[in-house]
Lab assay of single mutants.
Amino acid sequence: IQIFEKGDFSGQMYETTEDCPSIMEQFHMREIHSCKVLEGVWIFYELPNYRGRQYLLDKKEYRKPIDWGAASPAVQSFRRI
């Protein structure tokens, strides 16, 4: 998965294949504004440590949070399923 600090795949980008319990600790990001799921299925969580509201992401590109069903870019953790 590739995660971006700004919408439309702009700003700082990080790519990982590992679960992330805290985007702040692992990537020094506060929010995720866009992402590209390159393979597999992932779950975004609103809070750290896989808690809070969940969003299921299939293999595709998400230009903004509304594309994965979120009203805001408040994603604090994610993991692959």
Rank of each mutant, 00 (worst) to 15 (best):
L47Y: 11
V75R: 01
E5Q: 15
P21L: 09
Q2R: 12
Y45C: 02
H33I: 09
I23R: 02
A74C: 15
M29T: 14
I3S: 00
L57A: 07
E46I: 01
I3H: 01
F78Q: 02
M13H: 10
F27W: 12
T16S: 08
K6H: 08
K6F: 14
V41Q: 13
C35A: 08
L38K: 08
L47K: 10
L47T: 02
Y50K: 00
K6T: 10
T16H: 09
M13I: 13
K6M: 13
E61D: 06
A71P: 15
G11T: 04
R30S: 05
G7S: 09
I32A: 10
R30G: 10
G40N: 04
L57C: 02
A71M: 11
K60H: 00
D67F: 07
P73H: 10
Y50C: 06
K6C: 04
C35Y: 03
Y55W: 11
G52E: 00
V41W: 04
G40S: 06
D19A: 09
G52S: 01
Y55F: 15
T17V: 07
S72E: 15
N49H: 09
D58S: 11
P21W: 12
D67Y: 04
C20S: 06
W68S: 10
D58C: 13
F27S: 10
Q2M: 05
G69L: 11
E15F: 06
I43M: 14
Q26D: 14
M24Q: 05
L47R: 10
R80H: 01
E39S: 12
Y62N: 10
K64G: 12
F27H: 14
C20F: 03
H33V: 09
S10E: 11
H28G: 13
P48V: 05
F4A: 02
S72F: 06
A71I: 05
R63M: 03
V37G: 05
E61M: 08
K59T: 14
S22C: 11
Y14G: 12
S77L: 00
D67A: 15
E39N: 14
K6W: 02
K36D: 08
K64D: 04
P21K: 08
C20R: 03
Q12I: 08
E15P: 07
E5F: 13
P48Q: 09
A70K: 15
S72L: 10
A71V: 11
D19G: 07
K64S: 02
S34C: 06
S34V: 00
E39D: 08
G40M: 01
E5G: 08
S10Y: 13
F27L: 11
M13E: 12
E61A: 01
E18L: 08
I3Q: 00
L47F: 13
I81Q: 13
W42V: 07
L38P: 14
F78M: 15
I1G: 00
G11E: 09
Y50M: 05
E46N: 02
L47N: 03
S72V: 15
W68T: 14
G7L: 08
Q54L: 04
N49L: 06
Q2W: 10
T17Q: 09
R51N: 02
G7P: 10
M29G: 13
G7K: 14
M29S: 13
A71K: 15
W68M: 15
E15W: 06
Y50P: 00
L38V: 08
I32W: 03
I81K: 03
P48F: 02
D58A: 12
G69P: 02
L38H: 12
H33D: 14
R63A: 05
R80Q: 01
T17G: 09
Y62G: 05
D19E: 08
F4S: 04
P65E: 09
N49W: 10
T17F: 09
F44S: 02
S34G: 13
F44T: 03
Q2V: 07
R79K: 02
G69I: 14
Y62W: 15
E5K: 09
S72W: 10
R30C: 10
E18W: 11
G69V: 06
V41T: 14
D19I: 04
Y50D: 00
F44H: 01
F78H: 03
P65I: 04
E25L: 02
E15A: 09
Q2G: 12
K64T: 03
V37C: 14
W68D: 05
V75Y: 04
I43P: 00
W42Y: 13
V37Q: 05
A70M: 08
K6N: 04
H28V: 09
Y50N: 01
T17S: 06
T16K: 04
Y45A: 02
S10P: 01
F9L: 12
A70V: 09
K64H: 02
I23P: 11
S22Y: 15
D19V: 07
A70P: 12
V41N: 12
F44P: 00
C20D: 01
L57Y: 01
I1H: 10
R51G: 13
F44M: 13
K36C: 05
I66R: 12
W68P: 02
P48S: 05
I32T: 08
Q76E: 04
G11L: 04
H28P: 15
G7I: 12
G11A: 12
L56V: 04
S72D: 05
F27N: 04
S10L: 10
E39Y: 07
I43W: 07
G40Q: 03
L57D: 02
I81Y: 01
M24A: 06
F27Y: 09
M29N: 15
E39K: 10
L56M: 03
S22L: 08
N49Q: 09
V75F: 15
T16Y: 11
Y62M: 15
W68L: 07
E5T: 05
W68C: 08
C20L: 04
G11H: 08
M29W: 12
A71D: 02
S22I: 12
G40T: 02
M24K: 15
I43G: 12
D8F: 13
I43A: 12
I32D: 00
D58T: 10
G11K: 14
F9V: 04
Y55G: 01
A70D: 08
S22G: 08
E46L: 02
S10G: 09
M13A: 09
R53W: 02
C35G: 13
E5R: 09
L38W: 08
K59L: 04
I81T: 15
S72A: 08
F44A: 09
R80M: 02
Q12M: 10
C35S: 13
C35L: 14
R30H: 11
E31P: 06
Q12F: 06
P21Q: 11
P65T: 13
V37W: 01
